[in-house]
Design a protein around this nucleic acid. Sequence first.
DNA 1: TTTCAACTCCCCCAAAATGGCGAGGGGACG
DNA 2: CGTCCCCTCGCCATTTTGGGGGAGTTGAAA
Lengths: 237, 237
Amino acid sequence: MQSRIVAFIERLQQVTTFEGFQSLIEELQGLYQVEHFVYHSINSAGEPYAALTYSLDWVDHYLDRDFGRIDPVVLGCYQRFHPVDWKQLDWSGKAVKSFLLEATDAGVGNQGFSIPIRGPNGQFALFTVNHRCSDQEWATFTNAHVQDLLLIAHYLNQKALEIERGTDKLPDQPLSPRELDVLTLIGMGKSRGHAADSLSISEHTLRVYIESARFKLGAANTTHAVALAMARGKIIV
Amino acid sequence: MQSRIVAFIERLQQVTTFEGFQSLIEELQGLYQVEHFVYHSINSAGEPYAALTYSLDWVDHYLDRDFGRIDPVVLGCYQRFHPVDWKQLDWSGKAVKSFLLEATDAGVGNQGFSIPIRGPNGQFALFTVNHRCSDQEWATFTNAHVQDLLLIAHYLNQKALEIERGTDKLPDQPLSPRELDVLTLIGMGKSRGHAADSLSISEHTLRVYIESARFKLGAANTTHAVALAMARGKIIV
DNA sequence: TTTCAACTCCCCCAAAATGGCGAGGGGACG
DNA sequence: CGTCCCCTCGCCATTTTGGGGGAGTTGAAA
């Protein structure tokens, strides 16, 4: 088995397109005799990408209803470091329960194991393996393959980032020190006036920084700029 | 060696105070023959805590100058999943270089290895091992002990969270669905009017949500509320 | 040497956000 | 049955913002 993983990762290294990436994800089904695999990521610009084995209808429905905002898997993994078994997540809540029902109807299995992955500039990805079986069988499976899955998650993300770099995208404009200062203070709740005082500059000067930061980040307003800077890991409030 | 780690972790489980935690950190120096160990965390309320073996003068100076905002170790790990060797970080930049000089003067070694750890509600911690030696020796050391260090980092964080829970702290007020909706839309750059339209509610109603969310989060204004909600992992923009 | 990015400052005015006032209906829980 | 939270709505005065001008210094890079 171990050699098959190595072979898989070696073939993964050869992939150069999203299509090739998708078919490798599908290959995992056969390799592990598991129903579903999902890799999905959000890049620094906030654009999602996914390669998965769920039905396309379910994917459309998921995106349409913006389930990513209530999905306990996404929410639970977003702030976590370690892989999580879906049983550890919080599935209470009315909206969540109906989401779960719809997912089950769409063919999503009752067992899941998700690995969060983080890259530069706030890039975040999830590698999920999903199956329909008993708790017992699932525990056996996950225990046997955590190491493999961690490895695969790591290389999948590396490759996805690499492929994406090939696509046209606006380079991530770095913010100047003053711009970072200003966004940080504003993010900590200060008004323009107070922030300007803290930095011992005029309020107008501070405004110039906010505007240039907004422009670089592609933000619609100050709050948006702070949110984007945080999401991209440029500031910490 | 392995049994010593197990014994260490078992003793760690017995600890109930921050003092005990600190002395266990100091014990690691002897256990690994390494100069410095650092555990520091930021809880969901944004309060820092640290247990470390650096000189207290350096710690004071670090906090005083707010070096956490430029420290490449903190910045580099904040958005990462995997442990990082300090050599992989970006040490360019004028402020960073002078920070590095001051750190070296204060007894911080040239080699470092840091493990980011994430807990619920946006809790973030770093476990760092620091030493003075050649690249060669350091590579040997880290290769030999990554597994141990990951394990220790995990249990240290678990224990630190447990101890902190014992201290008095305001419970993390959950936000209502509408409050989350509003903060998310505002964080995505919408104005109040547009956000209200999206949710098909009056702008005034939307304001009520912003205000109650601000109150629950202890935020000074809307931007602050969005920043806090993001930092605590309640919303994703 | 020129050019360019970063940093600093000033005025004016319209638009947006905020703070404080008040009000009612629905659902959950003791 | 009362209490408390969530959801919904309106008005008015004040403060904060955003967008439009224009201008000077410094320091690094081309």
